[in-house]
Amino acid sequence: MSVDLETVRRVAHLARIKVGDDEAVRLQDELNAILGFVEQLNEVDVDGVAPMTAAVDASLRRRVDEVTDGGNPERVLANAPAADDGFFVVPKVVE
């Protein structure tokens, strides 16, 4: 499988990365090289094989349902590009 320019643009938009015209052409070549490389997986017989979902056999621990952290709005906001009155500030999203 290979991607066309329109697919590159669509995927870039899904990933929320703006790409220019020249960049999209370059990315198309690079993505196709990588997709060509991973094509070899089609040779593998995976019938009846379960997908791997955990790197190590271990069941997840459960913990007591209680608050262990929080109450630090200043620390949460400390690195925000824009913050006001205990909130993150973003461009207007509702007219």
Binding site: V11, L27, L31, V38, N42
Partner: peptide, 30 residues
């Protein structure tokens, strides 16, 4: 980083998930 984000977004996107991501996870089991 952009290349990898785009590849990752593509292989997880509708219609390609089984062909790429699920197959890769099965190969990982092997």
């Amino acid at each position: 980083v952009k290349r990898r984000i785009l590849i990752g977004t593509y292989v997880l996107s509708a219609g390609y998930y089984d062909a790429y991501y699920l197959r890769a996870q099965k190969v990982r089991s092997l």
